[in-house]
Design a protein around this nucleic acid. Structure first.
Lengths: 220, 220
DNA sequence: ACTTATTTTTAGACCTATCTAAAATTTTTC
DNA sequence: GAAAAATTTTAGATAGGTCTAAAAATAAGT
């Protein structure tokens, strides 16, 4: 009755795609998220529904059951704790840890997770600014906005990223954009929606809409 | 062309069963070691031979090729480093870490292993006294003897254990036997080969042959 | 609303790792 | 050295996770 590596991945991805409101996730979105074909997704959804981990009606998309969400949050907790470990303890860059954490998140043992969390000082956020659920599955719901949603004149702080892949994060590193840095929006271009911003009142640069869609910020 | 979790386990177990001299390992011994049936082992041996990781001739048992041994040593290195991490960093007991390390040993990423080793101070031995291969696969060949092989009057130091399971290690804990403690062999009973020993010149107790067969020692 | 396009599901197949039962080989015993 | 015992391999089956191609259901366009 244990859950496989693959099942755990589905639950995690359903959670991530259904957002804080828990909206229905489509088969195609899951195929994209799991890098498989829609037909494979359908098969897996049947199995997860069988196990009462998701609510599934043909052609209607899926949502997590309470049990499914609990499991998903455990995986997410592990993923984010391991990311903190990799960055804080082992000295990896925030652009290097996603793929390794994808593996580590499937290591079982509640005792391991709890001891890891304690060792790390029960961190609340991972290196990408994502909140870390506690052992009971409670996760602070941060309501940030995307940088692509702000207007000229706004002053904001970078709180998180939506893309965790190496190329995006390396691009941010090269641009000098890190968590916690302050941005003043000087100008937003009409034709391509790119933003001219000043970082920490020092450096000025353009941020493309492509990038600003993946940056989470909070107004000052 | 990557190697599966299962393949890695076979290589590790072949290494452990073939000892320092690299003797042939039988199909049945592997069935025992992998908790599967002999028929399943045969199938896997064919696949590993196909990949040139083992030398395999029907009915003749197997040995590792150089490539297979290199891979096996990488798995063993990871297993033992993670055990050090679990005990030294997270505070687990030496009796709790074997099963968790069995999972962690299959996490890929050479960078992870090297950084973990560096963080731990490049330890030479794991919490059970087993030597840890370095990044190049060199492992110090310690030639310890079993406690069951010593004679009356010998003074020895506990250097390692052959059974890594919780019940055995908890039994040692309850007996006050730890790595590095000194034993003087007072008497060996003829009928059941149990040994009367004095620990650290303080405490005296009987150790059954069952137990002494699983204790590695070095003469003083 | 009816046709077309898109999404999703079914049907049938494959691969990996496992199993049982039976056949083949090696080892042991007398 | 032949018969019995033990070991190992083959043959055929099953379960998990994936695929392609085709059918079914839903959504969109005019």
């Amino acid at each position: 009755m244990a859950n496989s590596f693959t099942e755990e991945n589905y639950l995690k991805i359903i959670h991530n795609l259904s957002g804080p409101e828990g909206v229905e996730v489509s088969t195609n979105a899951l195929a994209e998220g799991t890098s498989t074909r829609a037909a494979s997704v359908t098969d897996m959804l049947k199995k997860l529904a069988e196990k009462q981990l998701i609510n599934y009606k043909k052609y209607q998309g899926v949502t997590l059951t309470d049990e499914g969400r609990t499991l998903a949050l455990k995986i997410i907790r592990k993923h984010r704790l391991w990311e903190v470990f990799l960055v804080e303890t082992l000295g990896f860059g925030w652009d290097e840890v996603h793929d390794i954490a994808e593996e580590l998140e499937h290591i079982p043992s509640d005792r391991l997770v709890d001891r890891l969390a304690a060792f790390l000082g029960n961190p609340q956020f991972d290196p990408h600014g994502d909140p870390i659920p506690d052992a009971k599955g409670n996760m602070p719901a941060a309501n940030y906005l995307k940088l692509s949603e702000v207007v000229e004149g706004d002053k904001v702080v970078i709180m998180g990223v939506l893309d965790h892949e190496t190329p995006f994060l390396q691009h941010l590193d090269r641009s000098g954009v890190t968590l916690g840095c302050q941005l003043e929006i000087k100008e937003i271009n009409d034709y391509d929606k790119s933003a001219l911003v000043q970082i920490d009142a020092v450096k000025t640069l353009f941020i493309s809409q492509e990038v600003s869609k993946n940056l989470l910020v909070q107004r000052l």
